[in-house]
Design a protein around this nucleic acid. Structure first.
Lengths: 385, 385
DNA sequence: CCGGCATGCAGAAACGTACCTGTCAACTCC
DNA sequence: GGAGTTGACAGGTACGTTTCTGCATGCCGG
């Protein structure tokens, strides 16, 4: 069936080959041991199928013009030999690795921040799914990685989570022409290919309005000391709302990456002389910390204290009482970020930068709803004149 | 300085060359444009520095015998050109990619199970750190990925989390000679290179003893329906303990990957006629679910019901009351798994398989400690005769 | 009977690196 | 003062693909 190709046997031709191009022969016979120690290469498949390398490549990749019989035959032989194409060789040749970097913010030497934990996990999960569905895989690459690790992996593009102001990693990647999509609106003039974010100001304003509507007179904020976009925008929105509605700001800051500091800050907030009757906590653990602090001070939730917290955790559905949470929809963000990135990689974005805003969701539970409507006129928030 | 190679000029010889081997000339001049559109290659560095490619490679990789002056000069030129070695080419040449796969169990099309969530996140975090410290990066690869994604990435080795009985992915990887280290003792005769796990039987026995010492008469179990190693071993240990101590088993099963089913199962367990006075929950959310169920039935914790739950979550430190948890030490497991894997990749394991057991930690909180010692003889657990 | 056009495949040139194998000089050692 | 040694590099091949180009063959219309 698969007759060996007729050998062109002009003597001078063969002589010339062995003289001038001796490496040409060495390929097929000299240095190759039969099936190679480890894996079968495309050459082995070609030899076994009695066709050329080109034909094997075309048959397996669905390219070229081949009759179905040849295609099937090659595929079958490849299967029989357990042939797996070399990812490295393919990447070298095509320039595409099918790998996407997932750059996570770091505090100290741990890969990702503790406070963004549930958020990050959900986001990464969605991103992995989305990438996979389009044939890409994700590589976890902390921002502080040594340079050699970064340059040791061929990336088609990168997702950056909450890049800092003038992130050197981002600049370097852009300089290399690698698309970069950021989760979080980039600060300054960071030249990202696209970004996805929530409207944090809008979300905070919505929560404050919700709390005010539930009868809150003085709303406090539990916020962070770091300068990332999320913290900055949220705090700013809070201050703005206070100014607009004539309430004195009541807030406590703490280093958000320190799990213990949160409990202390929550305690401080409720110990203040101008104790708030409602609190919004910007970070995931704030809910349980505030609840514990309220118990210590004998404050009933929601009767004496209204509570809302930004979190993706499901535990707040079963706390006593259940706590109202703001979800940033990490699943949707993760998916969107990856779609945008792959579009850019594959040139489907037509080169223009994209900004995409994902809406948040306020999951209202007992902690921010008063059973009885607030008594009328406890005393309007007085402003020092 | 850099004279062109002398041209051999025998006429018949040249004729043969242009006929048979004309490609030999095209390399140096024909197809190359000056500095290439995108990035500078090692060739460009060599040309700019006035040395050979070999010298550049040696200088940058710290090999060969070169005077420091040359080394510095080459490095400087490389920096100036913004040279970054091609990861793909290096991988193709050396056979090492510096990438480690992190295979996660999947239910449905989501990358990882919900129940192992906090555990997984912590484990992945530690694994990422450990890999990075040794110059490797992690690729997230769900077990159900399409084959093309798996073969599209060159892996030096893989971490498999809780592989199923005769996992085809593991077999395939081993067949390709790629080291595989599993988190979780492999069931059956899965040929992994090494594995790391807790002693789950020991842990469960310890907890049951702890609860019995705290006065528990009838200890219930909240367990899963799936057949993974963790669930199987833990349940088995529970049954064994019951048999040994003459207590009737009281347990409820539910599909652990379903977040809602857990709450229902917790409710079922406490609604039974032979209601336990202590419960151990195998999965992360069981603690809050059991607490909520206990409240519904008017059971006080720990007075009427002792509670322990396997979890890595910090929320259990601030629940009301705080709940005793068993930590599987995912950080240590993640680190150990990666160390073993990289040892195997780099041939430091001397080829023998390694099994490593990480000890668990019981974090004792209020939920499993009775303020007053149990009243004597409430009535021994009666067995229907 | 011949030019033109599919069809079915083979040859060989890259992709960018690492490393093996020289080669040529300058020393060193009896 | 020649043989051996060592330092400092250059040449060239191989890693395993993809793909561009090329070459037969068969067929059809003119």
């Amino acid at each position: 069936m698969w007759a060996p190709a007729r050998a062109p046997a002009e003597p001078y031709y063969r002589l010339a080959m062995t003289a001038a191009g001796k490496h040409q022969v060495s390929r097929s016979e000299t240095t190759r041991r039969g099936t190679r120690q480890g894996r079968a290469g495309i050459r082995d498949v070609a030899a076994a199928a009695g066709v050329s390398i080109t034909t094997v490549s075309d048959a397996l990749n669905g390219k070229g013009r081949l009759p179905d019989a040849t295609r099937r035959h090659v595929r079958e032989v490849a299967d029989r030999l357990g042939y797996r194409p070399s990812a490295a060789a393919r990447t070298l040749r095509t320039g595409k690795s099918g790998l996407i970097g997932l750059t996570v913010t770091t505090y100290g030497d741990e890969p990702f921040t503790f406070t963004e934990f549930a958020y990050f996990a959900e986001m990464a999960r969605a991103a992995t799914s989305a990438a996979l569905a389009r044939g890409y895989a994700l590589v976890i690459l902390p921002a502080t990685s040594r340079h050699d690790v970064w340059s040791n992996v061929a990336l088609d593009g990168t997702v950056v989570i909450d890049p800092s102001d003038h992130d050197p990693v981002v600049s370097e990647l852009v300089r290399q022409g690698i698309p970069v999509v950021s989760d979080g609106r980039p600060a300054g003039t960071l030249p990202v290919t696209a970004w996805v974010d929530n409207d944090h100001e809008q979300a905070v304003l919505g929560i404050l309005d919700h709390l005010a509507a539930a009868g809150a007179r003085r709303i406090g904020l539990l916020t962070g000391t770091s300068t990332d976009t999320y913290t900055r925008l949220s705090t700013h929105a809070y201050l703005h709302w206070c100014e607009r509605s004539g309430q004195d700001p009541v807030y406590e800051e703490y280093p958000a990456h320190d799990p213990c500091a949160g409990a202390v800050a929550a305690d401080r907030l409720l110990a203040r002389p101008d104790r708030p009757d409602a609190v919004y906590g910007l970070f995931d653990p704030n809910g349980t910390d505030l609840l514990a602090a309220a118990r210590r001070y004998g404050l009933r939730v929601p009767d004496d204290l209204l509570l809302v917290c930004c979190s993706e955790s499901t535990v707040y559905a079963t706390t006593e009482p259940p706590i109202t949470t703001l979800s940033l929809k990490p699943r949707r963000i993760g998916t969107a970020v990856v779609q945008l990135l792959i579009d850019a990689i594959e040139g489907l974005d037509h080169g223009r930068p994209v900004e995409q805003v994902i809406s948040t969701e306020l999951i209202i539970r007992t902690s921010s709803v008063r059973a009885v409507p607030p008594r009328t006129a406890v005393g309007a928030p007085r402003r020092p004149e």
